[in-house]
């Protein structure tokens, strides 16, 4: 859906999205990386199981929620990537408190 304007420079890192390795650059958000994937969505809604993808990129829509390193419902547009991070698209009910 989106593409990077430049080749990743030195310092490129890898994150894991549902078992698929994805290239990322320091400083960018997890949501930005998600939007470059063949499956650019982040969560399924609890009510109708519809796909949602990052929409606002500024923390006000909560459609970018995903599981990051075992923590559910992380706003991925506010979370910078780090090497080895494990991201899982969030299916169904949002859990708070894990």
């Amino acid at each position: 859906m989106f593409r990077k304007l430049h080749e990743p420079e030195a310092g490129a890192l890898t994150i894991d999205i549902d078992g698929v390795p994805a290239m990322a650059e320091p400083g960018e958000s997890v949501a930005a990386v998600l939007l470059r994937q063949a499956e650019p969505w982040s969560r399924l809604t609890p009510v109708s199981q519809s796909k949602r993808a990052p929409y606002c990129m500024m923390g006000v829509c909560f459609d970018c929620l995903a599981d990051v390193d075992g923590i559910a419902s992380v706003q991925t547009c506010l979370r910078p990537v780090c090497d080895g991070m494990r991201v899982a698209r969030q299916i169904g009910k949002r859990t708070i408190g894990s």
């Binding site: 859906m1 989106f2 593409r3 990077k4 304007l5 430049h6 650059e25 400083g27 960018e28 958000s29 930005a32 990386v33 939007l35 470059r36 650019p40 969505w41 796909k51 949602r52 993808a53 990052p54 929409y55 606002c56 990129m57 500024m58 547009c77």
Partner: peptide, 20 residues
């Protein structure tokens, strides 16, 4: 998915150097 705000797209350009 695929519908975003213009602001979101501009943030993606600033933060990640990426465009549609």
């Amino acid at each position: 998915p695929g519908v975003l705000t213009v602001g979101a797209a501009q943030i993606l350009l600033k933060n990640a150097g990426q465009i549609p």
